[in-house]
Structures are given as C-alpha cells and as structure tokens.
Design a protein around this nucleic acid. Structure first.
Length: 887
RNA sequence: AGGCGGUUAGCUCAGUCGGCAAGAGCGCUUCCCUUACAAGGAAGAGGUCGUGGGUUCGAUUCCCUCACCGCCUACCA
C-alpha cells in the first residue's frame, strides 16, 4: 500500500509516450476538418533541453493538445536547425582533440564530419523533447539542411537577387575574430565593459597637438582623419590642417563633421573608418581612405607598422606604452562602455570593412509592418507590437554571408574574367553567360542560418513546390516563442511569408517570458545557474515539471525560479494519483465494477446538495478554463483547475462521499457516478497540462466505466452540462461549509482533533433541521447534534455556546473552556469586522456613491454590509453568551 | 539617450473592465500518522499593494513625478 501511495512517473511516462506514438495520436488527419497548426521554433542540433525549451514547448503542447481535443485537425510540426556557426564550432572542437583543424581536412571532408556528427547527436534534443511529453507529429520532422529545404533557400536567394533585393558589397560589418566570420547586427550582443578612455596627443603640422579621446588606441594605426564639430571654437583654426599619425607617419586631415559631440572627451575624435561603424559613416561623407589594420583573427596586420603580428588587445597595451614613452598620452581615465560580443562564442566583435552579401530589408519590411498595424496579425501580450514595429521601421540591411563551411552554400559563381558579373542561379552553371568562359568558381561562403529559418513556416510544407500540405496547413495558427528571437526570427518570418507566399505565416504570436534564476539572470550553463529539466523529469516526472512551470509563469512575464519550483506540480500530481486510488478502493468496497458515465442514467432531480454543488462548480470551471486558454492565460487556467480539484473536489466532495456506509443505495446509485464523472472531466481538463498521469488514470478508468475513447489525448474537450446545472447549490453549500469551518475552528482553538466526535445541542438553526444538511455538517465537523427546546444561553467550563445562522448550538467540552482567552479572541475578531462594517456603511450613506456607482456595485456593497452586520451581531451574541453581558 | 517591463505576505509570484474584508504556492504557528494521499489533513498568524501628487463617489488597478531593479534598442569616440 505504502509504495502505491506515491506516484511513480518514470515507467508510466515511457509507456504512454510509446502508446501514443504507436497509435499515431499526434498525426494530423489528411486534409479534413479545420486545421490548427503550430510550427516549432526549431532547436539547434547542438542544443540540450534547458528550462526555457521546457516552458516554450509545454505551452505549445498545451495549445495543440487542447485544440486536438476540441476537434481541430491539429498539427504541430517539429524540426531542428542546423545552426551554422554553433555546429561548426562543436565539430571543430572535436577535431581539435585529434590535433586537426577543418583546414587540414578540407571543405568536403570536413562537411562529411559534420554530417556524421549530426547523425549521431543532432536529434538529442528531439529525444529530450519527447520526454517532456510533447505531441509533435514526428512523421514530419524537418531539418533546415534537408534537401528540399536547401532548394527553398537557394530559390529565395535567386529570387531576391533577381529582384535587386540581394547585393554584394564592401561595407563595415561585425566580424568575430574567433569564428572568423561576418555576423549580422542581430547576432551581436552588447555588454557593458569596464575599460579606459585614453587621451592621445596627435602632433599637428606646425608644432601644436590635438588631443583625441578613444577607448581603442590600437585602431589609431588605421586612422585616416581627426574629426571635430564644425562650430567648435577650440578647433576652428585646425580644420583643414594635417596631423602626423605616430608610428605610421601618415598625414591625416582634421575635418569638420556634425556627428562629433563637442561635450564628449576633448571634442576631437580620431576616425578609423575600417574599424568603427560611426567612423565609417563619417568617412563615407568625407571620402576618406579606408585602412584595415587587423587580420581575420584579430591580429595586427602589415598596416600596423611595428605592431604587426600582435593580438589587438596586446597591441593596445603596447601602443599606450610606446606613446607614453613619446609623451603622447595625456591621460587615461577609467571608462565603462558597451561592447559587442559574438552571440555564439562571446568573443569581442571587431567591426571591419569587408565584402559580403546583403539583403535590402526596407521593401520587405513594408507588408510585415502593414499586417500588424492593420491588426491582422496579433501579438500576445500586445506590447510586443510596438517593439516589433520599431525594429521594422528602422530596419537595416541584413548581412547574410558567413565565412564558414557548414550551411547553405551561396548560389553565386564568379567568372575567372573579373569584369564579368557574378552568376546567380539554382544549379551550377556550365559557362559564364557574359564571356562564355568555363572557368567558374562558386562563392566560398554559406548563408546565415536565419536565412533558412525565416522560411520555416512554409518550407516545412514543401515550398517552393505547390504541395497539398502547403495549401491545407499554411498559414499556420499560432507561433509560440520567446522575446529573444523576435527580430532574429519572428519579424523575418513575417517578411518571408509575404514575399514568398503572399500570406502572413501565422495568425498570432504568443511571446512568453524568459526563465531566469532567483537573481534575475538568464539561465545559462556558463553561469552554472541552470536548472536541468531532465533531472526534474527523472526524479519527479514531466507532468510535475510542466505543471509547475506553467503555474508559475504569468502571461508573457519573465519568471524567476527557485530550485524547488517543481514541488507544486509534483505534489499536485501525487494528489491526483491518490484521489484516484480512493475511487478505485471505493468501487471495490461497493462491488461496483461498472459505472456509466458517458450514458448518463441518473435523474438529476434525485441528486443531493453535495452532488448538485460539485457538478455546478465543474460547469463553471469548464467555462473558465476554456476561456483562459483562448486568451493564452495558461497559469490562470492551471491554477483554476488546481484549486477546483484539490480544494473543492478532494477537500470537500471526496470527504463528503465518506459519510455513506458501504453499499449505501445513494452512494452506489449517485455518489459513485458523480465522483467518476467529475474525475473524468477533470482529467480531460488537465490533460493538456499533465498528459501522462491523466492518460494513465483515464485508462484505468476505462476498466470500470463505459468510457470508450482509446486515449484521453484524442477524447473530446469537456463542455458545460445543462443537465447538471443547479443554480442555488453554490450558495447553500457555502453556508454549510461556513458552519463546518466555524466548528472546526472552535475545536482547533480548544486543541481538540477534528476527528474526535463531540456532542452538541442546538436550537433554531433551521438548516440543521434538514436531515441531509445536518448529516453533512455532523460528518465534516465531527459533531453529533441533538435538537433541544431548552433555551441555550449558559456556558460553563464544560460547555461552549455559539450563535450561528438563526439559532444557537452548544458543544460539550468537558472542563476545558477557558472563557478569558475565548472572549479575547472574539473581541479581536469583532474589531476587524466592525472596521469593515463601518467602511461599507460609510459608502452606503454617501450620496455621491449611491448616485454614481453602478447598481450592481451598490447591491454588492449592501449585501456585504448585511453580511458584516449579521456577523457582528453574531460575535456580540457570542461574547454575551460567554460573559453574560453585552459587549 | 530612448523604449519596455517590474516593485503586492518572510520567499517566488497572481490579481483581466477602477468597486474583494487584497489571493496562491512555499515557509511559519498549533493540532492530527482519521482505512486516497505526511509530496497529506484541520485551523491559524502574516500585507499602509515602492515614493509623492492627480483624476474619481471610490485607485493595488487609470494619469503624472521620483526612486530602485531588470531587459531591449541607439554611431557619443
């Protein structure tokens, strides 16, 4: 018995996942019904399931399971992302263990290695997702390097090029010296950096100096001007003069530019067009020379004079040392500023002039802006609309070429005759259309991984082929993602959707919060603060993890998780498990082997209060939870079922069911039905949140009921029942609960276990005259009532008297009543109630309130006032009973 | 610099259209191993809803100010 009393998820979860797969529960039906479609944000093949994935995928699974149960043709398309840089890094690291570099292997051999790696490890995260219980249609598993996906990527490239929306050019871009590749603006993460502001003295022709302030002295070797504000009096006479740059002895001009901030530093700024985006802009305006001083690994190159070969940061120190020797460092101040890092390896980015491929974004952005402005594509929470639009309004061209090998190779070929334009086409050309030359070389570079991801919502359905899938399942319904990839991915998918399919890719976007640790930091392996979801699944089950996560994550709000966060779900699942055991045992005791739930055969009119009450409450919950899900209010839905199941069904209804002796006719005919009925509906409501335990219990339920659906996963979502709606039952039940709590409170106060049965007499209290209600109160509070006609107005050490409803009761307590303490407690209580009463009374005598407040509010306030008043009267009566005098 | 969030019980957080005697889980106190469940049951204690104004009959909720925390954008070297 003891071992059964704890839910053990491991085996059950494994078992049901297999069953679902075998039965094809997660597969969409063939082009029938109304589709509801989600495409997964494809995780990296290098990834391991972290708590953010767990949240993201649980939300999607809740939606898809709920919609599936609600009768939609639900499809959740899974897949993975080839993650160019990240994957290449991983494989290179593997090679390094053998003392090899990718260059040792050569492109083809290296790519073979990557494919081998991906075959071996690329689906790790997929297997981990399965352990979470997600109901993706795995027969449709996609990969961004699949053949048809490649075709889609190439098609898009060629199409955009032909439209003039893709171009190749020399621009300043973000360069990662460690990955040795260009990055897009979005792939750079900015962090604050405690560095210095160096004040350097540049000798001006004619003997004076001009002092420039810089955070990056090493870039001075590439300076091609010094800029000052045109109206800066200090430097007016220097404009047009030349400055001799130390070490390289280059003469560079002092130029006027409005971009210069007179207030900052000395008001004079060194201009390094090849290594700073702002300087690049100045240089473009003034036709300055571009001199690159570093190589692709971040070492100083041949333009760096005596510093050639030094790492850029070593060079910084060395240059300051040398300038110092020459008396050219005026001062050094500590200075904190933001600096860009590679989002894949965290190396400090080097802005560099480089020839790359770019996508012109302005034109593509327009439909993506319009669709959101016109409200045809919505964000939840709505505030993301603004962030999205702001980014699109200021969109910059997208650098899409990467100097790596793993990815979609750019479909561009160059003729050996340098004057011929590049040849852009799907398949390798045989000869140059311009000059007929057959000596063609394909561009070495590959495309940004996001250049394939942005096609995800339609490429997964076979685009550019006009497939039936595409026609039926596209556009998709809801996209569920985190804010981090709003620009990277979401905005670009919308652009791609319109550009290539003429349609928005999804109806709505739900953006959930980021999971952080208790200090507000992102969860990350390097910080060592990551909670491993798999560990939780191992020990407490996926259901526990899922429920806890959802319950703790408010609508679109970041969530801070303490280590023990998963207890809530774990305990809840255990509660469900045990309540079910109660039912099983009860059935056995009553020789009740078959319960008709689906074909209801009982008369609603014959039901008692408890049954009427729990059924009515169930109706309310079904409505509420469905409403919550419609609005992405997952935590509210989860907490609402939690409250209902635990604190209403278990705490009150199951407890009440225990008052019937075994084989009692009403128990067998009605209570057992209601216990099962509510359990069944609740399992369904809970299934999207905690699929495993609900499936297990549903299957057990099938053994002793007429429930026929093969799986709860494919059964129907509950709707409220007209048959089981009993309007006044809620109020009446609440009165009974109040009386019970009052008595339990008294017993607790006198340190008597609730289970200890006591005798009491009562007078008045018409509610107790009804056998049914009296029995409920007696059972739940452990009291045996005896009606009396004698006026109860005395108390003693052996007896405590209480007023309640329209009468009194008196409980025998055998000499333990301490009147002093009890009176004190009541006086305390009276103060509280009195205060609340006075407040409502004040409102109700305020004519402004009566004139302005809506009538329903006035009604409610009146009702509250009356309740408070009678409670006050009651407390006063109780005090009087105890002390014999009016308080 | 701008934008967006947050500030509610000891902790982590809910609180939708302004109208509650301000909620949950954990923790805490007292009692209970009652035949589903101690990962449990019963009953409690605990909050001036960040500051200062404003609008309103009424503000945790709406508006403004400030403070602190976090995030995101931006060419101040």
């Amino acid at each position: 018995m003891a071992e059964n009393s704890r839910y053990n998820p491991a085996e059950i979860e494994r078992y049901w996942y297999e069953k679902w797969m075998e039965a094809g529960c997660f597969q969409a039906k063939n082009y029938s019904g109304i589709p509801y479609v989600i495409v997964i944000p494809p995780p990296n093949i290098t990834g391991f399931l972290h708590i953010g994935h767990a949240l993201n995928n649980t939300i999607q699974d809740i939606l898809i399971r709920w919609k599936r149960m609600s009768g939609f043709n639900a499809l959740w398309v899974p897949g993975t992302d080839h993650a160019g840089i990240a994957t290449q890094n991983v494989v290179e690291k593997e090679l390094m263990k053998k003392g090899l570099t990718r260059k040792d292997l050569g492109r083809e051999e290296f790519l073979k290695e990557v494919w081998k790696w991906r075959e071996k490890y690329g689906n790790c995260i997929i297997e981990q997702l399965k352990r979470l219980g997600v109901s993706c249609d795995w027969t449709r598993l996609c990969f961004t390097m699949d053949k048809n996906f490649s075709r889609a990527v190439q098609t898009v490239f060629v199409s955009l090029y032909k439209k003039g929306l893709i171009y190749r050019g020399k621009r300043i871009i973000n360069w990662c010296p460690r990955c040795a590749t260009a990055l897009s603006d979005e792939e750079v993460e900015y962090d604050s950096y405690d560095g210095n502001l160096y004040y350097l003295k540049y000798p001006v022709e004619g003997g004076k100096f001009i002092v420039v302030a810089t955070t990056r002295p090493e870039t001075m070797l590439g300076d091609t001007a010094v800029a000052v504000h045109p109206s800066d009096e200090r430097y007016k006479d220097l404009i047009g003069k030349k400055v001799r740059l130390p070490f390289v002895n280059r003469l560079i001009p002092v130029i006027p530019d409005y971009q210069v901030d007179m207030e900052f530093g000395t008001g004079a700024v060194k201009v390094t067009p090849s290594h700073d985006p702002a300087d690049y802009a100045i240089a473009s305006r003034h036709n300055l020379e571009f001199i690159t001083v570093m190589d692709e690994t971040g070492r100083m190159n041949e333009n760096a004079a005596i510093f050639e070969g030094l790492d850029r940061f070593d060079c910084r120190a060395k240059i300051i040392e040398e300038l110092g020797k020459q008396g050219l460092v005026e001062k050094i101040e500590p200075y904190s500023y933001r600096i860009g890092h590679c989002y894949r390896c965290n190396t400090i980015i080097e802005p560099t002039i480089s020839t790359q491929w770019f996508v012109k974004m302005k034109q593509l952005a327009q439909p993506a802006i319009n669709v959101v402005k016109q409200g045809q594509l919505r964000f939840y929470p709505e505030r993301w609309t603004k962030v999205y639009l702001q980014w699109l309004d200021n969109i910059q061209d997208w650098c899409i070429s990467r100097q790596i090998w793993w990815g979609h190779r750019i479909p561009a070929w160059y003729c050996s005759n340098k004057s011929c334009p590049p040849i852009i086409c799907l398949d390798a050309p045989q000869q140059c259309p311009q000059c007929g030359c057959k000596n063609l070389i394909q561009d070495e570079d590959v495309l940004d991984t996001w250049f394939s991801s942005w096609l995800w919502p339609f490429a997964v359905f076979g685009w550019p082929e006009k497939t039936k899938d595409l026609e039926f399942f596209y556009p998709t319904s809801t996209l569920v993602t985190a804010q981090e990839i709003l620009f990277f991915w979401v905005a670009r998918m919308v652009m791609a959707g319109f550009e290539f399919t003429g349609k928005k890719p999804f109806e709505s976007v739900y953006i959930h919060g980021t999971v952080r640790d208790e200090k507000g930091r992102k969860m990350s392996k390097s910080l060592g603060n990551a909670i491993d979801p798999l560990e939780i699944i191992d020990h407490s089950g996926a259901d526990a993890l899922r429920f806890s996560l959802i319950s703790l994550t408010a609508f679109g709000q970041d969530v801070f998780l303490p280590d023990s966060f998963y207890h809530k779900g774990r305990n809840f699942v255990n509660k469900i498990w045990n309540s079910f055991r109660y039912i099983e045992i009860l059935l056995e005791k009553n020789d009740c082997s078959y319960v008709k739930i689906e074909r209801i055969e009982l008369e609603p009119d014959n039901l008692h209060l408890a049954e009427r009450w729990i059924l009515t409450l169930l109706n309310k919950k079904i409505i509420h939870i469905t409403e919550c899900l419609n609005n992405f209010r997952f935590n509210e839905a989860a907490d609402s079922i939690y409250e209902f199941f635990w604190h209403q069904y278990c705490d009150w209804y199951i407890e009440l069911s225990k008052m019937y002796p075994a084989k009692d006719p009403y128990l067998v005919s009605s209570v057992i039905f209601v216990l099962n009925y509510v359990m069944l509906k609740t399992l369904k409501l809970l299934h999207p949140f905690i699929p495993f335990v609900t499936e297990e219990l549903y299957s057990r339920m099938k053994r002793f009921t007429d429930v026929k659906d093969a799986f709860v996963a494919t059964s129907d979502w509950p709707s409220p029942s007209d048959t089981f709606e009993f309007g006044d039952s809620l109020k009446l039940m609440n009165r009974i609960k109040e009386i019970v709590v009052e008595i339990r409170d008294l017993k607790t106060f006198f340190k008597i276990p609730v289970t200890k049965n006591l005798r009491a007499t009562y007078q008045g209290i018409s509610l107790l005259d009804a056998d049914e209600y009296r029995r409920m109160v007696e059972f739940l509070s452990g009291i045996k009532f005896q009606k009396t006609d004698q006026i109860i107005k005395t108390h003693s050490k052996d007896e405590i008297v209480r007023s309640i409803e329209d009468g009194f009761f008196s409980i025998k307590l055998d000499g333990i009543v301490d009147i002093e303490v009890e009176v004190k407690r009541l006086l305390n209580e009276k103060q509280k109630v009195l205060k609340a009463y006075q407040e409502t009374e004040k409102k109700l005598t305020n004519s402004a309130f009566l004139n302005n407040a809506p009538s329903i509010v006035i009604e409610r306030t009146k009702q509250l006032r009356n309740e408070l008043e009678s409670e006050l009267v009651k407390i006063e009566k109780d005090i009087e009973l105890l002390t014999g005098e009016k308080s």
